[in-house]
Write a protein that binds this DNA or RNA. Sequence first.
DNA 1: CTGATATATGCACATATGTTCATGTATGGT
DNA 2: ACCATACATGAACATATGTGCATATATCAG
Lengths: 109, 109
Amino acid sequence: MSEEYEEALGKNENDLDEETLFIVSQTFKALGDPTRIRILNLLFNNEYSVNDIADILDLRQSTVSHQLSFLKNLRLVKHRREGTFLYYSHDDEHVMNMLKQTIEHANHS
Amino acid sequence: MSEEYEEALGKNENDLDEETLFIVSQTFKALGDPTRIRILNLLFNNEYSVNDIADILDLRQSTVSHQLSFLKNLRLVKHRREGTFLYYSHDDEHVMNMLKQTIEHANHS
DNA sequence: CTGATATATGCACATATGTTCATGTATGGT
DNA sequence: ACCATACATGAACATATGTGCATATATCAG
């Protein structure tokens, strides 16, 4: 048994509390789906309505709406109403930066 | 129809190619599970054998083994053999940095 | 070679997830 | 009030995912 092991056992200094674990996993889970990545990637520079997103990415309206709802619950996107239109935009700089970094990291590999 | 929309339609400058999409989503998916987060978090500073990890995190040996296999396929961890023991350690600084940042981000929120 | 320990792996199972269809709600125009 | 358009939502479905059991493989000691 290593000393590191003995050091780790008992103390849960090395482990994460349940709430942190939940928030972190939810955040990454949001970025773990191709459709949501495409949507967030589209929102990097501009805001778009639900139907705009569906048309540009060739997705069903309901699919986009469900995913935007998911992202909105996690406060990764926000929206602004204009008549019957809802214009969505990103709302978490930290997450958007991670996404950008990872996309770049993936592109030159 | 917005100008941004017209700008985006047709050009897929705004969309990601399939391979990038796959790599990025796989990477984030790896971080989207509480068990894998706990394992990677444990590996921040030290290497541990499979049974060490199972004992410390109170998980089944097969669960840990399965998840390490998952992480190893994505090159997020590597291992070093010593007799019958396999000592696992992290193998992707970029991913570990993202994890650390996100944990800190979650903790003071 | 045998036994003991450490780890990996295939299968089965329960649950989670993503998409679609159908329909509901909301807003504005006439 | 009615219709048209934009979006949301619930249910159903197929697929993906995480875990556990049982078993296979690997390495070493004797």
